[in-house]
Simulated scan of single mutants.
Amino acid sequence: MEYLCKFGRIGNRKTTVISGVHYNTNAERQKYIDDGYIPISDEDYQHYIGNRGQGDNGTGYIRDAKTGKPVSAPPAPPVKAEPEPIEPEADDVRLAAFEAMAAQEERMAAQAKRIAELETMVKALKGGEGK
């Protein structure tokens, strides 16, 4: 089994094709070679796919342009901490309006409950439904 890999500008593995899977003849193989694919060993392939660890920096392996061998990829760039969101100031007028609306809804619910109780009492006094 032979692996042909295409690498990015910094040496990261972009695409891999495998003999017997993606190509079977020398002519098919040559098309990949002409398209920039490079033959690599099974051991090198195992490094690139992470089966040999994640390298010295925990970011995997890339292809060294000089030696053609896997080397530890550079460390990941530091992640900038996002500033904590600023709590918007409460608009006193709007806050008062929402509180008033909530209080009004509570009063309306209480009134609806009281009306239902009164209607039940009136029905009972009249002797039930339909009288």
Rank of each mutant, 00 (worst) to 15 (best):
L95W: 11
E106R: 09
R63L: 02
P78D: 14
P74M: 02
K113V: 07
V122M: 14
A96P: 02
Q54Y: 06
G60Y: 02
E105G: 04
A65K: 10
P83H: 12
M108I: 15
Q54M: 07
L95Y: 13
D56F: 04
D91E: 13
V93Y: 05
Q54C: 04
R107I: 11
S72M: 15
A65G: 10
K123G: 03
G60R: 00
E89V: 14
E89R: 15
A96G: 01
I115E: 09
A97G: 04
G53T: 00
A76D: 11
M121C: 02
V79L: 04
L118T: 10
A110K: 11
L95K: 13
V122F: 12
N57E: 07
G55C: 00
M108N: 09
A103D: 14
R52Y: 01
R63G: 01
D64L: 03
A76H: 15
A103H: 11
R107L: 12
K123M: 06
A73D: 00
E87N: 14
A116Q: 01
A110E: 15
D64W: 05
R94M: 04
D56R: 02
P88F: 07
E117M: 10
V122P: 07
I62G: 01
R52C: 03
V71N: 00
D92F: 09
V93A: 01
A109L: 12
L95Q: 10
E99R: 12
K123C: 02
A109Y: 08
Q54H: 01
E84T: 12
E119K: 15
P77L: 12
G60L: 01
T67L: 04
